[in-house]
Design a protein around this nucleic acid. Structure first.
Lengths: 264, 264
DNA sequence: AACCAACCCTGTCTTTTGACATAGCAGGCG
DNA sequence: CGCCTGCTATGTCAAAAGACAGGGTTGGTT
C-alpha cells in the first residue's frame, strides 16, 4: 500500500520532457465528451479534477508508455487512441493482457503497489491525461463520486479480464478470435472510433497471437478461415464484422451490457 | 450503474432463511483477525462497518452461493473457507475464474451492474458475512478508507486475473498447474489455512482442468508428471510444494509481493 | 531501380492436447 | 457383504496447435 512518490532517478525524465504542462484541452472541454459510450461527469466535479491534472502526454504507435517493473509518479486517463497492456516472461514469451480505449484509466494497480506488473504500449498515436500519483487519493477521499467511479472502472476491467479468461480457457482458436474481434469493435464503437461498425486499428497477426495464446502461424490460418466463413474480416489495418449477432453466437458471447462507463 | 434493491421475487428467499441475522462474531471480534496476511482495520472503522452488517451465512462444500445471472441484494466478505467463481457457457463448458479466500469480497461487480456474470460455489464449508447492497455506497462515501480498501481489493483481484491470463496464454500444462498450486498455497498460507506450507483443500482434477483450460485426462497425466518430478504433490485433499522457489522458477513466477490485504 | 524492413501466406512435420473407453479404488450405506 | 458414487489412473487413436522453413507483398528509403 505504498503511496510514496519516490521514483528511481531518471526513470521518469523522458516523460517530463514529453509532457505538455497543463496543456491540451482543459477539463471543462475534455475531448472525451465526444465519446458516445461515456457517462459525463458533472461540471463541478470537472473543476475539481482540473486542479490536479498535470498535463498531456503523447505517444506514437509502437512507443512504450512505461515498462513492467517501473515506478511512475503518474496516473493516466486515455484521452484518445488505443493502447495495450502486456506482460513479459523471462524467456521472452509475451502475453497481451488487454487493450485500452479512450476513457480507460492507467496505473491504478501501480498506484497502490508502487511497481507496475505490466507494460503499456501505444497501438495508435495516443494522448494521455496525466495526474500526480501522490495527490490522487487525497482527491478520491474528498470526492466520493470519484472513488466510486474508480471502483467502477476497476470492477469492469476485472469483468473484461474474466471474459478473456473464458476465451483462453474454453474457446478454440476461431472462437477466441471472434470473441476478441467483437470485444474490440464494441469498444471501438463506444469510443466513436468505429463508424459504421468498421474499426480502423492496426493490429498485427503477431499481436493477435500474443493476445490469444496462439502461434503466429495458427493465428494466420484461423484468421483466413474466419474470412472465408464471412464471420470476421480482420486485416492489418481494420476489423470488420459483417453480422455482429452471428459473430456473438459463434463465439458464445452474451449481449453487451448497456451501462455507460464513467471516466476521470 | 444500477443501485436499486429490486430483486425478482423468491430469488433470495433461501438466503434469508439461511442467514443468522446479526449472528456470529461481531465486527469488533472479527474472525479475520486471526489471518496473518490481512491488514486489520482500525477499531472505529469496525464499529462503522458493524452498523450495516446484516448477519452471517453458511454453506457446505459443493453448495452454490449464487448463480450467474442472479440479482442479489447482498454483498459478502468471506469469513472462513474457500470458494470459487465460475462462468458457464451455453453449451456446458465451464471456466473457473478464480478461488476466493478469507477476507475476499464477493459481489462488487454485481453491486455496480445488478447482474452477476459468474457463479460462486463453496469448496469447503464456508462462512460469509452479509452486507446490504443498497446501503453499501452510502457507507463507502462516508468512509474514504473503506472505498480505498474496496479499490485495493478490486485492483488486486485484477492483478491475480492477469497472472491467470498469462498462465492460460503462455504456459504449458505443467507450468500452469505449478503456477496454480503456488498461487493457492501462497493464499492458503496468508489465510492461515496452510500450516507448514501444506494446504488441506479438496480440489478434484476436474476442477483443476476447468480452471486451467485442460481436459481431465491431460490434467491427470500432467499432475502425475509433476509428482514424479517432485515439483508439486497435489492429491484430492491437499497440495504440497516441496520447494517453493524451485516451483516458482519452473513456472516463471515472480516472488510474491508482501503487501498485506485489507478487508471489509 | 535496388534495397530493406515488416508483415502476411503456405507447406511439411512434430508435439501437445483432447476424445473415448475402460479399469481401479476408496468411502458410504443398506 | 454387495452395491452404489465420485474420483483417479491408463491405453489407444484423433484433432488441434506449434515449429521450422521459405516465399510473397507492400511500402519506405537511398
Amino acid at each position: 500500500m505504498a503511496r510514496d512518490d519516490e521514483v528511481p532517478a531518471g526513470s521518469d525524465g523522458y516523460l517530463q520532457t514529453r509532457m505538455v504542462r497543463n496543456g491540451g484541452a482543459p477539463c471543462l472541454a475534455c475531448p472525451l465528451e465526444a465519446c458516445p459510450g461515456l457517462h459525463q461527469p458533472k461540471s463541478e466535479l470537472r473543476g475539481w479534477i482540473a486542479t490536479f491534472r498535470q498535463g498531456e502526454v503523447r505517444f506514437a504507435r509502437g512507443e512504450q508508455v512505461f515498462a513492467q517493473g517501473e515506478r511512475l509518479p503518474h496516473l493516466f486517463t486515455v484521452l484518445s487512441g488505443v493502447l495495450m497492456r502486456t506482460r513479459l516472461l523471462e524467456d521472452g514469451r509475451r502475453q497481451i493482457i488487454n487493450f485500452m480505449f479512450p476513457g480507460d484509466f492507467i496505473g491504478l494497480q501501480a498506484a497502490l503497489d508502487g511497481e507496475m506488473t505490466h507494460s503499456v504500449e501505444a497501438l495508435t498515436s495516443v494522448t494521455l491525461c496525466a495526474f500526480a500519483r501522490g495527490r490522487f487519493f487525497e482527491l478520491a477521499a474528498q470526492q466520493p463520486q470519484l472513488s466510486f467511479d474508480l471502483t467502477w472502472l476497476a470492477a469492469h476491467e476485472e469483468a473484461a479480464l474474466e471474459e478473456h479468461i473464458v476465451s483462453l480457457g474454453q474457446r478454440n482458436a476461431r472462437e477466441r478470435m471472434v470473441a476478441l474481434a467483437v470485444f474490440l469493435v464494441q469498444r471501438g464503437m463506444d469510443s466513436g472510433l468505429a463508424p459504421g461498425g468498421l474499426l480502423s486499428l492496426t493490429v498485427t497477426q503477431g499481436q493477435i497471437a500474443d493476445m490469444l495464446g496462439l502461434s503466429l502461424v495458427h493465428t494466420n490460418r484461423s484468421l483466413q478461415a474466419l474470412r472465408r466463413l464471412g464471420l470476421v474480416d480482420w486485416t492489418l489495418s481494420a476489423i470488420r464484422i459483417p453480422d455482429m449477432d452471428e459473430a456473438r453466437r459463434f463465439a458464445g458471447l452474451d449481449a453487451p451490457s448497456p451501462s455507460p462507463r464513467p471516466y476521470i
